[in-house]
Design a protein around this nucleic acid. Structure first.
Lengths: 199, 199
DNA sequence: TCCGCTCTTGACCATTTGATCAAGAATTAT
DNA sequence: ATAATTCTTGATCAAATGGTCAAGAGCGGA
């Protein structure tokens, strides 16, 4: 057993490479089949190693999953964090929406990974949702409400606005097969951001 | 083995009751744990019968799942079918959005069942998406485009409008735990429909 | 070079789980 | 009533799957 994991000492080149390969493979497999549907064998095969070898780096299937989620959670919140209270509302919201849409387009697997986790009741990241995520959303909702009260944007419930943005942007990643089936092809042009006209 | 299944003869009272109980239980279990995550034992327990007894009515786990999906698919499309080309656009769209929202609120389990199926690539209802669903959407998209061209509503891509409606309405069912975690409680008031101002 | 540590894997184990079967209980038709 | 049919379940099976182990291969520092 490598010291690295237990004592957080420096990692071997091989360790770094293997863990990366495993997490890459895990993202592909978990996002496609869900936590329960994915098998360790599948992930190992996708990562190009034997199952015992994979389990040498991550003792349990759950460890891979949790590590994967944690690794991506922070990135996922970055765009919302960047919403600037002192910026121009329309500009800020447009940038947020655009960034989210690009992330869904460029990394649909990550989007589906989260979608699946939440759809199943967020058994692993429930605390994260109720803690850090909630605080962040409360914070940014206050910003949007402020904008509303100052008449800089249409009066709108900030939480529902955020939900609407999440829903629409992630839809193209999470329900890609449906979008593809209905349109007959992969969406080339992302939808224009929903425009909020002054009330 | 009952003749009913093979020969589509009239069903026994017991058959009807049992199948109903199974499908009810299956909706609960499948929508919570997904197809792979749900076990036949769980469904049988939830339906109040033994596993072999359940398998007497549905030979395979997959049969329960498919039957369940088929049973709900039609209902799910009803609101979109009702979109009337000759009606008042704002009224028609509002009614459609409201109905979808109510369905998500009243039957979140069904919403999650579909979400899970599609998230995982629609292995069972792929043909339905590419066939009946696509035709219906094409049809109604044409209606919306017509409204656009006549200047009765803002110029907007009909497909993306439909996707936006699907995404936002289902969001409250599919991602309920997230909504709950962020707002700290169950949403009491559904969001107001997105208003499209004339361009 | 040589020794210790890391890495890798075939074989194996225990549990879960979808599915079967035979035998008995309940129901229905005559 | 009684025979035929339908319904129900305990016991059981085979496959899949998460996880272990021991033994060997590979690598790096002295």
């Amino acid at each position: 057993m490598p010291k690295a994991r237990a004592e957080a000492v420096q990692k071997t080149r091989i360790q770094a490479r293997s863990e990366e390969a495993i997490l890459d493979a895990a993202l592909t497999v978990f996002s496609t089949y869900g936590y329960r549907g994915a098998t360790v064998d599948q992930i190992a095969a996708e990562a190009g190693m034997s199952k015992p070898n994979l389990l040498y780096y991550f003792r349990r299937k759950e460890d891979i999953y949790v590590t994967l989620l944690e690794r991506t959670l922070e990135d996922w919140l970055e765009p919302l964090k960047a919403l600037d209270p002192d910026g121009e509302p329309a500009e800020e919201l447009t940038r947020y929406i655009t960034t989210k849409l690009e992330m869904s387009r460029d990394n649909p697997a990550a989007s589906r990974l989260f979608a699946n986790e939440i759809l199943h009741g967020a058994p692993m990241i429930g605390d994260f949702l109720k803690g850090p995520l909630r605080r962040l959303v409360d914070d940014k909702a206050a910003v949007i409400r402020q904008w509303s009260e100052l008449g800089r944007i249409t009066a709108i419930d900030p939480y529902h606005l955020i939900f609407a943005i999440w829903a629409t942007t992630q839809h193209y990643a999470d329900f890609e097969v449906q979008v593809r089936a209905v349109t007959g092809k992969k969406m080339s042009s992302p939808p224009r951001a929903i425009r909020c006209s002054p009330s």
